[in-house]
Write a protein that binds this DNA or RNA. Structure first.
Lengths: 342, 342
DNA sequence: CTGAAAGCGCTTACAG
DNA sequence: CTGAAAGCGCTTACAG
C-alpha cells in the first residue's frame, strides 16, 4: 500500500541510511545519489511515516495548549495565533479546556503528558502552578504561560500590559470629566489586580481619592454565556449604580462585560449619560450594541504568536542543551474610544 | 529516566508479552501474574509510551477537524462538542482553518494526511469535495462532513434542519403580519439554499408570492469581524431597505448578521418598527443589542458531539471490516423570538 | 496461561 | 561519500 523507506532504497539502489540522509539532509550525499533517491521517492509516491519518525526521535510534534476557559473567545484568538506560528515549525497545538477548574487543569496536563506532548502552553486557572514541579520532574518539557501569572513554577510568560491598559482606560474617563469611577474585575487574580493597579494610578495621579467600595471582583466562573449575565458581576453593577454616585464604570474583561452590560440594559441605565462605560478586551459585537462600547484592546493573536515562538525556542534550547533564564514579555494594549464613554 | 515495558517485565519476572497483555487486557492472564505486573507498574511508575504504541498499531489517535472558517464561532462551538466526545474514545481533534479558501482546505487535508491523521471531520469551503477521492485513494481514512453538504465524495454528514429552521423563521414573521420579507444568505451554498427553501415554503404556504428580488446571497468571505460589516451583506441590506418596501428581514447566519445589523444601525433603521429582524444562529451578544435579536438557534455542540460519534463508529467499522452506507443526520433548530421581530 | 521472537519504519552512531 | 546494523518500545501471531 504505502511505500516505505526500504522500497525507496531498493529502487534507488542505495541503503536506507542514505535515503534517510537525503530526506532529512542530515549528511552530505553525492548529487547523483540524491537524484536517484529523489526519482525513486517520486516514482513510489513515497511519504515519510511520521509515526515511525516521531517514535524514533521520541517526540510527538504536539504542543498542549491548556486553556482556563475556552468559551472565552479571547483564548480562541490566542489559539489562532499560536496555531499559525507553530505550524511553521512543524508543530501543532492540542487545545484543551480547563473550565476554570484547577483539578481539571491538572488532569488535563497529566493526560497530555501521558499522551507524549512535547511542550505546554498554559493559561492557568489559578496562580498556584506548583503542581507542575512534581509532574514535570520525571518528564521535563518546556512550559510557556500566557495571560495569567503563575506562582510556584518559574517559566516563560506572555502578558498584556495590564497596568498600562487600566491606566489608559481610567485616564480616558477622567479626561471626560469623571471622578466617581468604579472598577469590576472578572475575578481576583494577578491579571485583574494589575488592571486595578492601573486604575488606581490614574486616580492618584489625577488627585482623585481611591474609594475601596468602587473596586469589585467577580468569581470568574466558567459559565455558559447566557448564565454569565446573572452572576456576581451583574450584582456588583447593580449595587454600584443603585447605591453609589458612580458616573463611570471600567470593567475588567469581555466576559464580565456581558454581565455588567446586561444589568445596565435591563435597568435602563442610559450609557453614557447616566454612566460612562469602558471594558478591557475588544470584540466585534462591541460596535453592535447601542451605544457602541469603548474598550482597551488586547492583541490575542500576537500573544499566541509570541508564545509559540518562545516555546519553540525552548524546544531548540533543550536539543542544544542551552540554559536560559525564564522570560517575561508584555504585549501592548490600545484604547478604542466609542460612544459608551464619550 | 522513564521506565519501559522491559523493565516492568523484568521486575515482575514475566515476559513483555504478558505485561502488554495485562496492560491492554488483550488476553486472559492469571490473577497472580496480573498482581505481580501491576505491582511492578506501580513501583516503577510505568506509563506506556504512546509514541511506540501508535507507531506499532499504525494509528495516531488524532482526528483532523478541517474548518472552512474558524473565526466563525459557530465552528468553534462544534469543536467544543467534538473534543468532548472524542476524548472519551482516546482521540483528539486537530483544528485547522481553511479561511474559506478551497486551496487552503486541500492543502490542509494533504498536510494532515501526511501527518498520519486517523480520520477527518470536514466543514468544506465549497461543495466540490471530489479532490478527496484522489487523496484518500492510497490512504483511505474515514471522513465525516458537517454543516455543509459536499458533492463528489460520498460520506457521513451532519447538518442542521436548515429548511425547517428557515420555515420557522419566516412563519414567525408572517404571524406578526409581515408579507414583504427578504432573505440574505451569507453565500450561495447548499446550506443557505436550504434555508432559502424554508423561506419560500413558508411564503407559498401562506399564499404570499415569492419575489426574486427579495432573495440575496453574499460572498461568504472569511474576513476579520471588523471588515465583515462593510461587505456585500451590508450592501444588500442597504439596497433592500432603500429600494424595496420590505418590512422584515431574515438573515442566513451569524456572520451575515454582523454586516446586516451594522447597516441597519448606521442608517438608523428602527428595529422592529421599520424592519423586523431575525437571524440564523443564536449567539450571546444577540441579547446585548438594542433591541435584542431573534434567532433560529442551532446546536453546534450537539453537531460536534454527533460527528465525533459517527467518525468513531467508522473507525471501529474499519477495524471490524464492516461496510455501511453513508449516513445523513439532521439536528433540530429552535426559534428564539426576541424584540427584533416582535 | 505464558514466553520467545519477529517486526512495525524509521534514525543514527559506527566503520570503511 | 556510503552502507550494515543496532535499536527506539511496543504488539501480536505463534508455539508450547
Amino acid at each position: 500500500m504505502k511505500a516505505t523507506i526500504k522500497e525507496v532504497a531498493r529502487l534507488a539502489n542505495v541503503s536506507v541510511a542514505t535515503v534517510s540522509n537525503v530526506l532529512n539532509q542530515t549528511k552530505r550525499v553525492s548529487p547523483e545519489t540524491v537524484k536517484r533517491v529523489e526519482d525513486a521517492v517520486k516514482k513510489l509516491n513515497y511519504q515519510i511515516n511520521p509515526l515511525a519518525r516521531n517514535f524514533r526521535k521520541g517526540e510527538s510534534k504536539l504542543i498542549g495548549f491548556v486553556v482556563c476557559d475556552l468559551s472565552n473567545y479571547f483564548f480562541q484568538d490566542i489559539a489562532l495565533g499560536l496555531e499559525k506560528r507553530l505550524s511553521r515549525y512543524g508543530y501543532r497545538p492540542i487545545l484543551i479546556d480547563s473550565k476554570e477548574n484547577k483539578l481539571t487543569e491538572i488532569e488535563n496536563v497529566r493526560n497530555l503528558l501521558a499522551g507524549s506532548i512535547d511542550a505546554f502552553i498554559i493559561a492557568p486557572t489559578t496562580e498556584d502552578c506548583s503542581y507542575l514541579k512534581l509532574m514535570l520532574e520525571q518528564n521535563p518539557v518546556p512550559v510557556v504561560f500566557v495571560d495569567r501569572k503563575p506562582v510556584g513554577y518559574e517559566s516563560d510568560l506572555v502578558l498584556s500590559s495590564n497596568e498600562q491598559g487600566g491606566y489608559d482606560a481610567v485616564m480616558h474617563l477622567i479626561s471626560r470629566g469623571h471622578k466617581d469611577i468604579a472598577f469590576i474585575g472578572s475575578r481576583f487574580d494577578s491579571t485583574m489586580v494589575e488592571r486595578a493597579a492601573g486604575y488606581k494610578r490614574a486616580l492618584v495621579e489625577s488627585g482623585i481619592p481611591v474609594n475601596a467600595n468602587y473596586i469589585r471582583y467577580g468569581e470568574g466562573l466558567s459559565l455558559p454565556h447566557k448564565e454569565l449575565r446573572y452572576g456576581s458581576i451583574y450584582q456588583h453593577t447593580l449595587d454600584l449604580v443603585t447605591n453609589y454616585p458612580v458616573t463611570a464604570l471600567f470593567v475588567g474583561n469581555n466576559m464580565a462585560t456581558i454581565g455588567a452590560y446586561s444589568c445596565l440594559k435591563e435597568h435602563k441605565i442610559r450609557v453614557p449619560e447616566d454612566l460612562a462605560f469602558i471594558t478591557f478586551d475588544d470584540s466585534f459585537w462591541l460596535t453592535l450594541t447601542t451605544p457602541a462600547i469603548s474598550a482597551i484592546a488586547q492583541q490575542p493573536e500576537k500573544i499566541g504568536d509570541l508564545a509559540g515562538k518562545m516555546v519553540y525556542q525552548r524546544l531548540c534550547d533543550v536539543k542544544n542543551k542551552v540554559n536560559r533564564e525564564p522570560q517575561l514579555v508584555r504585549i501592548d494594549t490600545m484604547l478604542v474610544a466609542r460612544t459608551s464613554s464619550m
